[in-house]
């Protein structure tokens, strides 16, 4: 996630810097390699974000039993896969 932010900040700086920079980023972004990187970042973000939301719910005192904890974890992973597939569809 940390290195992903490095890449995204770099892309932001270049794309906002100048029109030619923007076209350069747009050009690079259409390559398979770039889309794979975007997809990796989005999947990592989805997993991290959903896991975090689950932790917020656990802070409120829910999902603390063995059964509810286990099932909420599995739902989180399932949702991550769904979002990852959606990101893939959107990218390609």
């Amino acid at each position: 996630m940390f290195f992903a932010m490095g890449i995204l900040m770099w892309l932001l700086a270049v794309s906002l810097g100048s029109e030619s920079g923007f076209e350069c980023v747009q050009e690079w972004s259409s390559s398979f390699f770039a889309k794979f990187i975007y997809w990796g970042i989005l999947t990592a973000l989805a997993y991290h974000l959903l896991g975090g939301l689950r932790h917020l719910v656990m802070d409120l005192g829910f999902w603390e039993e063995i059964q509810s904890g286990n099932s909420s974890a599995q739902i989180t992973i399932a949702l991550t896969i769904v979002l990852s597939v959606l990101a893939g569809v959107w990218l390609w």
């Binding site: 940390f2 490095g6 900040m9 932001l12 700086a13 906002l16």
Partner: peptide, 18 residues
């Protein structure tokens, strides 16, 4: 790593400034 995170913030300020 903390310096890098700080660099992301400063990069954002510098980029958005312009």
């Amino acid at each position: 790593l903390n310096i890098a995170a700080l660099a992301y913030l400063v990069t954002g300020i510098v980029v958005l400034w312009g």
